[in-house]
Design a binder for these strands. Structure first.
Length: 495
RNA sequence: GCCCCCAUCGUCUAGCCAGGUCCAGGACACCGCCCUUUCAAGGCGGAGAGCGCGGGUUCGAAUCCCGCUGGGGGUGCCA
């Protein structure tokens, strides 16, 4: 059975690059009907926190990645100790009493001489008596892995192909720290082996670690898994995507109003391409069916927020079922202070979902559909001040009082006003728009009138009108309008 | 410095493994037109890479080989 895993360390929010790794690993397991394991790598006790672990799990769940098994490395220290003991007994590991300072100066010396640094192997040949003696003195020590001389480790990467690295490039490395905690290269082997992981899918920054791990597998007499190293994700400047590039965590995008399915879909397009050309829109189920490591590109990809935005827009306007869109948008509206009725919101979204690309943007777009918070842009106020606008609005008010309101009705009314006043269609609509939305751009005014209760429309018109009609010298139109609209709290049926 | 990985429109990519059907296809972004009460959305059209450079191999190379250059990653008692 295929077993893959995602092994993040809880030292920050889930990074987009890691999220993609998780997705590919998940897709691979599901595609083969295998098992997907989540393993929290918290052996670095300095940097790992409970909070980050929680965030990590939440973000993964939000993305729709469900795991079959969960492990935390800090729960498995006994196991690592056991394996370390094995390596020690078989002579594949040895205690090293070098201090951090000593090692630091070794490194510095190498650098000065311009030669590549590797651990000197000073403690390699310590006699059992020396070791005993040092231990008795209470000197702290690490456990180092004895790297066989002259080996060239070779493996077939599922994405990169043939990779060969000589052990000359690294010296004996630490597998257990002086405080007794095991290090990454060691635990990862113990874990992958004991968990039955068959495919290690991870970022290509792990390529240099792979030979070390293979060596440990061999020392333990275990069969190494298959490796697949994904290319990194780059920022616009072609350096590794990092905080310098702005929003790089899944959390950021969630908060900005991106949908999990859209992010999932987009991330897949970064480095993987579907077998069928032309299509870019995929559900999770389709991705599971289509995914293969063979179609993962081996060169790094630049993350494009523009394209993510576009794809998110596609999900908002075409993919997501209306009811789910309502559910997704609701929390964003609530955060902005609106408490819309679901059915009402549903009706609004039906007409407006094609006019925004993120949920956050949706809140902005939908503001005119809710009472109480209308503010006016400068251009809108300027428009409202014109004589034309006043004429249009009073005509509108007059006609409105005698008939029902609907989208079609508004169109008819606008046309009548246009004729009667001898204006261009544009001028009529501009006045209505400014008065009803506070902006000169946005969703269709007819849509607004169709959905908004008639009394709310009347209210907005009346107030714009009465104030602009009885203007006192000291009052700027802005002050008049704003003050007025802010005073109005609720409108029946809206909150 | 040393080691490893990578290289097709601005960006994501198809094509490369099994050389000709590719004077290189799609998508985002961009430009124009249409629709239109605005911004979008939508529809239609356009521009944009001779496939990093230089050598080979071959009748023929984006596709195979070598070198160079460029970019990225690694070089920890981080993961």
């Amino acid at each position: 059975m295929v077993v893959s895993r995602f092994a993040p360390s809880p030292t920050g929010y889930l990074h987009l690059g890691n999220a993609r790794t998780a997705i590919f690993s998940y897709l691979f397991a599901r595609h083969h009907g295998g098992k997907f394991i989540l393993r929290v790598e918290d052996t670095d006790r300095e940097r790992s926190t409970q909070e980050f672990e929680q965030m990590l799990l939440q973000d993964l769940q939000w993305l729709g990645l469900e795991w079959d098994e969960f492990y935390r490395q800090s729960d498995r220290f006994d196991l690592y100790k056991e394996y370390a003991q094995k390596l020690l007994e078989s002579g594949h590991a040895y205690p090293c009493f070098c201090t951090v300072e000593e090692l630091e100066s070794e490194r510095k010396r190498a650098e000065e001489k311009g030669v590549p640094y590797r651990y000197s192997g000073k403690c390699r040949a310590l006699t059992p008596q020396q070791v005993e003696g040092y231990k008795k003195e209470g000197r702290p020590y690490t456990l180092r892995f004895r790297v066989p001389d002259g080996r060239v480790v070779v493996f077939e990467d599922l994405i990169k192909g043939h990779i060969s690295i000589s052990v000359e490039d690294f010296g004996d490395f630490v597998i257990v720290r002086s405080d007794g905690t095991p290090t990454y290269n060691f635990v990862v082997v113990v874990d992958d082996a004991t968990m039955g992981v068959t495919h290690v899918i991870r970022g290509e920054d792990h390529i240099p670690n792979t030979p070390k791990q293979i060596l440990i597998y061999e020392a333990l007499g275990l069969q190494p898994p298959r490796f697949a190293h994904l290319p990194v994700i780059l920022g616009e400047d072609r350096s590794k995507l990092s905080k310098r590039h702005g929003a790089v965590s899944v959390r950021n995008y969630r908060e900005e109003g991106y949908l999990p399915d859209a992010l999932f879909n987009y991330l897949c397009l970064l480095g993987w391409s579907p077998p069928e050309e032309g299509k870019e829109l995929f559900s999770k189920e389709e991705l599971i069916r289509l995914f293969s490591l063979e179609r993962v590109n081996s060169s790094p990809a630049v993350f494009s927020k523009e394209k993510l935005r576009w794809l998110n827009g596609v999900y908002i306007r075409e993919v997501l079922p209306l009811d789910r869109l309502v559910e997704e948008l609701l929390p964003f509206l609530e955060r902005a202070g609106y408490r819309p009725d679901k059915d009402y919101l549903r009706r609004v979204l039906q007409k407006t979902r094609d006019s925004f690309e993120t949920l956050k943007e949706g809140v902005q777009r939908l503001r005119p559909f809710f009472a109480g918070e209308l503010t006016y842009s400068e251009e809108a106020l300027k428009t409202l001040q014109t004589q034309q606008a006043t004429a249009v609005l009073s005509a509108f008010l007059h006609k409105l009082q005698q008939r029902e309101l609907s989208g079609e009705g508004v169109k008819a009314i606008a046309k009548e006003i246009q004729k009667e006043l001898g204006l261009k269609a544009k001028e009529v609509w501009h006045a209505l728009r400014a008065c009803l939305t506070g902006e000169l751009e946005g969703v269709g005014v007819d849509i607004l009138c169709e959905v908004l209760p008639k009394e709310e429309v009347l209210g907005r018109v009346e107030r714009a009108l009465s104030k602009s009609g009885h203007r006192r010298p000291a009052d700027t139109p802005q002050a008049l309008l704003c003050e007025d609209f802010h005073r109005r709290e609720d409108s029946p049926g809206l909150s």
